[in-house]
């Protein structure tokens, strides 16, 4: 009882108080590794651009900025749904937690559909990774992130299924926080990727 109370207090502690890392420590090391890889790719893009500014600016004009913006809204909204899912399990509402997670997965699914439409339009226009350096980064980074969205959806699906079956409750929901942390990382990376590739010139 005391342990459950401590978990509950730490989960809802005000932001000023020190509390434990949410979710599994191993996932946080994985997240750091992912951030490092994406960070290297972002900087490779930024510094490669310094040698080909005109090419990068001209190629960027061919991107579907609206699609990128809608995808940003979808991932941000998916992250918000995951926050709601964690909040629900803290209040012992396992089914509601699963519903929010499924809603987040739907956002991820819509992201994938839009991204596929975007990519197929480029391929139909004869653009591929060897067209130029800009499109190598655009397609390469986009596909790499795309795979992370898929993995995030698989993780959320597994967590939603366990939540639906009653595998989590207010005293034990570390698995929900672990899945949530990964999904937020996928969102965080896109928050940098979108302005870098689609907006800045």
């Amino acid at each position: 009882m005391e342990a459950a109370l401590n978990v509950s207090l730490s989960a809802s502690a005000p932001h000023g108080d020190r509390h434990d890392l949410p979710g599994d420590l191993a996932m946080w090391f994985f997240i750091l590794a992912e951030l490092l890889v994406f960070g290297v790719f972002f900087l490779a893009y930024a510094f490669a651009r310094t040698h080909n500014v005109e090419l990068f600016n001209a190629s960027q004009l061919e991107l579907d900025r609206l699609s990128g913006a809608i995808n940003t809204v979808l991932l941000i909204t998916g992250s918000y749904f995951v926050v709601r899912a964690v909040d629900q399990i803290r209040h012992n509402h396992a089914r509601a937690c699963a519903h929010w997670l499924i809603a987040a997965m739907a956002c991820g699914g819509a992201f994938l559909v839009l991204k596929l439409i975007e990519f197929s339009a480029k391929f139909e226009a004869g653009i591929n990774m060897s067209t130029n350096t800009f499109f190598m980064f655009y397609l390469g980074l986009g596909f790499f992130h795309f795979m992370h969205v898929i993995l995030g959806m698989v993780i959320l699906g597994a967590v939603a299924l366990k939540a639906w079956r009653g595998g989590y409750h207010a005293g034990a929901y570390s698995g929900v926080e672990t899945g949530a942390a990964y999904w937020h990382m996928v969102d965080l990376v896109w928050i940098v990727l979108f302005p870098l590739i689609y907006i800045l010139n």
Partner: peptide, 30 residues
């Protein structure tokens, strides 16, 4: 996203600063 959604604000240890540091470093170098 880092402080609120990931709930890293107020977490014990260097985790918040590592992730925020990543963001600051990447955006600064960009």
């Amino acid at each position: 996203v880092i402080d609120r959604f990931m709930a890293l604000q107020g977490v014990s240890g260097p985790w918040r600063w590592i992730v925020l540091g990543w963001l600051l470093l990447v955006l600064g170098l960009i």
